[in-house]
Deep mutational scan, measured.
Amino acid sequence: MGSVRTNRYSIVSSEEDGMKLATMAVANGFGNGKSKVHTRQQCRSRFVKKDGHCNVQFINVGEKGQRYLADIFTTCVDIRWRWMLVIFCLAFVLSWLFFGCVFWLIALLHGDLDTDYKDDDDKSKVSKACVSEVNSFTAAFLFSIETQTTIGYGFRCVTDECPIAVFMVVFQSIVGCIIDAFIIGAVMAKMAKPKKRNETLVFSHNAVIAMRDGKLCLMWRVGNLRKSHLVEAHVRAQLLKSRITSEGEYIPLDQIDINVGFDSGIDRIFLVSPITIVHEIDEDSPLYDLSKQDIDNADFEIVVILEGMVEATAMTTQCRSSYLANEILWGHRYEPVLFEEKHYYKVDYSRFHKTYEVPNTPLCSARDLAEKKYILSNANSFCYENEVALTSKEEEEDSENGVPESTSTDSPPGIDLHNQASVPLEPRPLRRESEIGSRR
């Protein structure tokens, strides 16, 4: 089982795998120059863009038009607004034209077009017409509009002379109601789609790998820009990579689940303020055997998904993003964004995407760390350097704002901070800030 798991979770494809794949392509008759073999020097295209759209195009789909027309309502909801407006206008105009032609044909076959009612006051002739005051196609078209929109100006009306005319008036009224219901329903469904809710759900630009509770963890940050909550919010993550099976089958995008606390339930989050999602790199993680150097040379993509129900409509929305291997910062942490004021908490989104480097973060893999092949620094050293990194950030910001350097908390000259780390230190809580992250 261990060997199978290692093969499945191998992220960085070796040169031997690339040569094996190329040999397979030639042997199977696919070596026509169009096949692409992804190596370390040639990274694959992003499968999920940063804005959440999937970078996929469908080609050679059989009976595409028929399949889309069979699900016309979903098609109308998914198309762009400009095409929705075109369909909206065409549906009414074509129905008016169709029934206008029908009423014109009825008048033509009944002989109503030969009668001039402007110079004739004989009401008996008017009563013999199928539709009064309809003696041309324009008049028939206007009567069709008046019937379907129930305008009723009063000059044109159907008589009991022709039952077919009466039937067409009733039929057009029913068709008009159906068109109204369909168009209004599609427009309302399109307006109520929770897709735009994703514009106020954000992911951090970069993911980070750092120590948390004595273990290497992959972390990324999510935030909600609205005050309205995302009900039943939960997160998922998958690692996408290519691999070759033991039988020699090439899988271009193998999807591997990344555990973010599904078993323990901590994948469900209360997204009021930005939260750091934590994936513990343990023996079940696809990143277990990867060191910093392996991450730098790897070719994979981590897709992160945030799902929840919109509070206003109770409709489920899904926000997506992805991180390539070069977008994962090893040995970094996110800057705090949640600050405790006197009577409330304040979230500073200008710090949302910012990170700071944490010294002495192990550069080895989580496996080597678990097997004690890498000796961690003293816990006080880690905490102290973590505090120094934050303090230096604040000093830089104070210097930019014009604060005198004498007010900063610099260490005395001639003292090495790293050498001082081995000395037991008193706890130094942050002056006014605390970061709330997901705790395992």
Score class of each variant (00 low, 15 high):
2 G>P: 04
3 S>M: 05
4 V>Y: 05
4 V>D: 14
7 N>G: 14
7 N>S: 06
7 N>E: 15
10 S>A: 05
15 E>K: 03
17 D>R: 05
17 D>H: 08
17 D>V: 08
22 A>E: 08
24 M>I: 12
25 A>Y: 09
25 A>I: 04
30 F>N: 15
32 N>M: 07
37 V>G: 12
37 V>I: 09
38 H>T: 13
38 H>S: 15
40 R>M: 08
41 Q>E: 13
41 Q>W: 05
44 R>F: 10
44 R>V: 15
47 F>K: 06
48 V>R: 01
48 V>L: 09
49 K>F: 03
50 K>N: 05
51 D>S: 06
52 G>T: 03
55 N>G: 07
57 Q>D: 15
60 N>W: 06
61 V>G: 15
65 G>Q: 09
68 Y>G: 08
68 Y>H: 09
71 D>T: 13
72 I>Y: 07
75 T>Y: 05
82 R>S: 05
84 M>C: 05
88 F>E: 04
88 F>W: 07
88 F>V: 12
90 L>R: 01
91 A>I: 09
91 A>V: 04
96 W>E: 02
97 L>T: 03
101 C>L: 15
103 F>A: 02
103 F>S: 02
103 F>C: 03
103 F>Q: 07
104 W>I: 10
105 L>K: 02
105 L>C: 06
105 L>R: 02
106 I>V: 05
109 L>H: 15
111 G>S: 06
112 D>S: 02
113 L>V: 08
113 L>F: 08
117 Y>F: 04
119 D>R: 01
121 D>H: 14
122 D>M: 02
124 S>N: 11
125 K>A: 14
133 E>L: 03
137 F>G: 04
137 F>T: 03
138 T>I: 04
139 A>C: 00
140 A>L: 02
142 L>F: 02
142 L>T: 02
143 F>W: 03
143 F>E: 00
145 I>G: 05
147 T>C: 01
148 Q>F: 03
149 T>C: 05
149 T>I: 02
149 T>D: 06
152 G>I: 03
155 F>V: 09
158 V>G: 01
162 C>W: 00
163 P>W: 15
165 A>R: 02
167 F>K: 00
171 F>K: 03
174 I>P: 00
176 G>W: 03
180 D>K: 15
182 F>I: 05
184 I>H: 06
185 G>E: 03
190 K>V: 03
190 K>T: 09
190 K>P: 12
191 M>T: 06
194 P>M: 04
195 K>M: 05
196 K>D: 14
196 K>T: 07
196 K>G: 12
199 E>N: 13
201 L>T: 10
204 S>I: 00
206 N>K: 04
206 N>E: 14
207 A>L: 01
209 I>R: 00
210 A>N: 11
215 K>C: 13
218 L>A: 05
220 W>F: 08
220 W>H: 02
221 R>F: 01
221 R>V: 01
223 G>F: 07
224 N>R: 12
229 H>V: 14
230 L>R: 06
230 L>Q: 10
230 L>Y: 07
230 L>T: 09
231 V>K: 10
231 V>C: 12
232 E>G: 11
236 R>I: 03
237 A>K: 00
238 Q>V: 13
239 L>I: 14
244 I>K: 15
244 I>E: 15
245 T>P: 13
245 T>L: 06
251 I>A: 15
251 I>F: 15
252 P>S: 14
252 P>W: 14
252 P>L: 08
253 L>S: 13
254 D>W: 07
255 Q>V: 12
258 I>P: 01
259 N>M: 11
259 N>S: 11
267 D>L: 03
273 S>V: 12
273 S>T: 10
274 P>W: 11
281 I>H: 00
282 D>Q: 05
288 Y>A: 02
289 D>C: 07
290 L>N: 03
291 S>D: 11
293 Q>L: 12
294 D>W: 01
295 I>M: 04
296 D>M: 08
298 A>M: 09
298 A>K: 06
299 D>Y: 03
301 E>R: 00
301 E>H: 00
306 L>H: 02
309 M>R: 12
315 M>D: 11
315 M>N: 07
321 S>A: 13
321 S>D: 01
324 L>I: 08
324 L>W: 07
326 N>H: 09
331 G>V: 02
331 G>H: 00
332 H>V: 01
334 Y>C: 02
336 P>R: 08
338 L>C: 14
339 F>H: 15
340 E>I: 06
343 H>G: 09
344 Y>P: 09
345 Y>W: 07
346 K>Q: 05
347 V>K: 01
347 V>A: 15
349 Y>T: 13
350 S>C: 09
355 T>C: 08
363 L>N: 12
364 C>I: 03
365 S>M: 01
366 A>R: 01
366 A>C: 01
368 D>G: 08
369 L>R: 02
371 E>D: 04
371 E>Y: 03
372 K>A: 13
374 Y>I: 10
375 I>C: 14
377 S>F: 06
379 A>P: 10
379 A>R: 11
380 N>Y: 04
381 S>A: 09
382 F>I: 12
383 C>Y: 08
385 E>Q: 04
385 E>S: 04
389 A>V: 14
389 A>L: 14
391 T>V: 10
395 E>C: 09
396 E>N: 10
396 E>H: 12
399 S>G: 09
400 E>M: 11
404 P>E: 10
408 S>A: 10
408 S>G: 09
409 T>G: 09
412 P>F: 10
412 P>C: 13
413 P>C: 10
413 P>D: 12
420 Q>K: 05
422 S>G: 05
423 V>K: 10
424 P>I: 11
425 L>P: 13
426 E>M: 07
428 R>C: 13
430 L>V: 09
431 R>I: 14
433 E>M: 09
